[in-house]
């Protein structure tokens, strides 16, 4: 595994991680600001933080309540 980590060119992988990170941060900021979400608010926190890539997207599509 260690060998594998060394072999990866991080310049290539970094953008993937950065994009994921931005998605999570933007989703969390939005989550903090909203009063209510579809379903329990704390549940969306876990979805955003713990489900890779798809979590924030699920929150943006289904979590935000339409007024």
């Amino acid at each position: 595994m260690q060998e594998f980590l060394n072999e990866i060119n991080w310049a290539i992988i970094a953008p993937l991680l950065i994009i994921q990170f931005i998605l999570v941060v933007v989703a969390l900021i939005d989550w903090l600001k909203t009063e209510d979400t579809n379903g329990p608010k704390w549940m969306w926190f876990f979805i955003i933080v713990f489900i890779n890539i798809i979590g924030p997207v699920l929150y943006f599509i289904f979590g935000r309540s339409q007024r």
Partner: peptide, 21 residues
Amino acid sequence: RNKKWVWVPLVIILLAIIDPI
């Protein structure tokens, strides 16, 4: 305000590069 301008481009970029990488 929906943040669509943030997350839609990001998700599309992710989708476009994940398979080649």
